[in-house]
Design a protein around this nucleic acid. Structure first.
Lengths: 78, 78
DNA sequence: TAATAATTACCGTTAAGGCGGTAAAAATAG
DNA sequence: CTATTTTTACCGCCTTAACGGTAATTATTA
């Protein structure tokens, strides 16, 4: 399932959907991801200002992959 | 240019590459994105704990799009 | 070369993100 | 129904992300 993220709030929806489909409580997911349960609660309730490393930890547990499309690629040589 | 993000540090590389190719200084990009110049400095220097809304603001200016691939989609009906 | 401008590096302060603890609510069992 | 378990909601504290200001560095021009 590929989703183009238009708004940050889209991320919360995907986290909620995947957590529930994976039959994980917030506390279980938080434990697996190595984050506090509170941040999961906050994210699922619309918080837009959490840290990306928190997001990556959660995504890792839920097997969610991120791809970005940019005008320019990474230059290997300076 | 599509890039699968494996590590958070990949993001910094892409920001640096696209900022330079767009001929923007950190201060210019920060101004356009509505964030402080310091956070751009920090991100480009390996910080892994910045907020996603900061990232989205920066990506918006640089025309970088995010797509995520998840096992389950969003359920419209509860 | 020196002088100026532009960019980057870093410091100190402040607002807020993330934490555990716990109460409230919901689900399940008996 | 009540009792127990599970999940969610929220509070207060502590750490820190982001900020502006400024020094240091680099680039540009004469």
């Amino acid at each position: 399932m590929n989703t183009r993220i238009e708004n940050i709030s889209d991320i919360a929806k995907i986290i909620i959907a995947n957590r529930k489909k994976s039959n994980l409580s917030r506390e279980q997911l938080a434990l697996l991801a190595g984050v506090g349960k509170t941040v999961l609660y906050d994210i699922e309730h619309g918080k837009l200002t959490y840290k990306i490393d928190t997001l990556f930890k959660i995504f890792s547990v839920l097997n969610i992959k991120i791809t970005i499309e940019s005008p320019f690629g990474i230059e290997e040589n300076e």
